[in-house]
């Protein structure tokens, strides 16, 4: 069971998060929504364990995959290496297949800086999906993609969640996207932000 018990999160003197308590069951997909600047990415960072300066505690599994709000690639390594260096078990063939799934076949030898932003985001998705995690965290993974590509990525995410069933927490601004993927939608609201369950 994944347990999030945030009681207080400050940046300097400004309190960003108040009481944010929720659980994610194995295989469950939870969407996190709320206005810009409310603290959604902050909740994800705390869950991922990259921000440890908060009051409260979090139980999380070992094997996690994160798709950040920015692509967060290694600009000095090729597209293919961006997968194989992070997932050594994948092998070149596995990495090529992963690239193919997100529509990046043929871009293996380019550097990330030579991809469009949408392509970089898809590479970040491929990295997140390459090996099945126990917990998948995604921060607006389908932003800045055209409707068809977003649809393809959504379908890919659905099929991944159907086959490997990771517990998932993802942030979105798109109501339809949240309803389609998530079993449950959580809303952050107020200052400092607290949770309001909507579904």
């Amino acid at each position: 069971m994944i347990r999030i018990r945030i009681d207080d999160k400050h940046f300097g003197n400004a309190q960003v998060l108040g009481r944010v308590h929720f659980d994610i069951a194995p295989g469950e997909c939870v969407a996190l929504v709320g206005p810009s600047g409310i603290g959604k990415s902050t909740v994800l960072r705390i869950l991922a364990g990259t921000d440890e300066a908060f009051t409260g505690h979090v139980d999380r599994p070992e094997r996690m995959a994160v798709v950040f709000q920015e692509p967060t690639l290694l600009p000095w390594r090729s597209v293919l290496q961006n997968l194989t260096l992070v997932h050594p078990d994948l092998g070149t063939a596995g990495a090529r297949a992963a690239l193919d799934r997100v529509g990046l076949a043929g871009k293996e030898t380019l550097f990330p800086g030579q991809l469009s932003l949408g392509q970089q985001r898809r590479l970040a998705l491929a990295r997140g999906f390459a090996t099945p995690p126990d917990l998948l965290i995604m921060d607006e993974p389908f932003a800045s993609l055209d409707p068809e590509t977003a649809e393809r990525m959504l379908a890919l995410t659905e099929s991944l969640m159907a086959t490997t069933r990771p517990a998932t927490l993802f942030v979105t601004h798109d109501r339809a996207e949240a309803e389609r993927l998530a079993d449950r939608i959580l809303r952050l609201d107020g200052a400092p932000a607290t949770l309001a369950e909507t579904t």
Binding site: G49, T50, M64, T72, L74, R77, V86, H87
Partner: peptide, 18 residues
């Protein structure tokens, strides 16, 4: 990038080199 490496549990050697 540090956060990314930590989450994906990249080894120390890989982090240094890449």
């Amino acid at each position: 990038l540090d956060a990314m490496a930590r989450i994906y549990r990249m080894s120390w050697r890989r982090r240094m080199a890449h």
